[in-house]
Amino acid sequence: MAHEHATEYAAQHDVAPHDRAARLRRALAEDPRTSELGVAISVRGDRVRLTGTVASAARKTEVDVVAQEAEPGLHVTNDITVVSAAEPGEAEDIE
């Protein structure tokens, strides 16, 4: 029923889910607080799920704030993780 939900939501808010995803993508890329191009955005009805990695916990929070400001009608699920800075394992042999 997700599709019906999305259609109903779009009708109420006069905007399609993919337009919301596009607006969010631009906001996260162009807002200087985030400047994130590496966040995947998935809009389903009135919910958006954000995935990907960022360089710090503070940036994960900033993405939340900018996304919420850009689309206040959406419920944001922030599944972004902070990238690992661990030492690498064994070197790969390049033949």
């Binding site: 990238v83 690992s84 800075a85 030492e87 690498p88």
Partner: peptide
């Protein structure tokens, strides 16, 4: 020619290492 994408989110480490003859 071998190609490696070393974007930190891809290698998920501080760096990756490659040994060449």
């Amino acid at each position: 020619v071998p190609v490696r994408n070393v974007a930190q989110p891809v290698i998920n480490a501080a760096y990756a290492s490659y040994r060449l003859p």
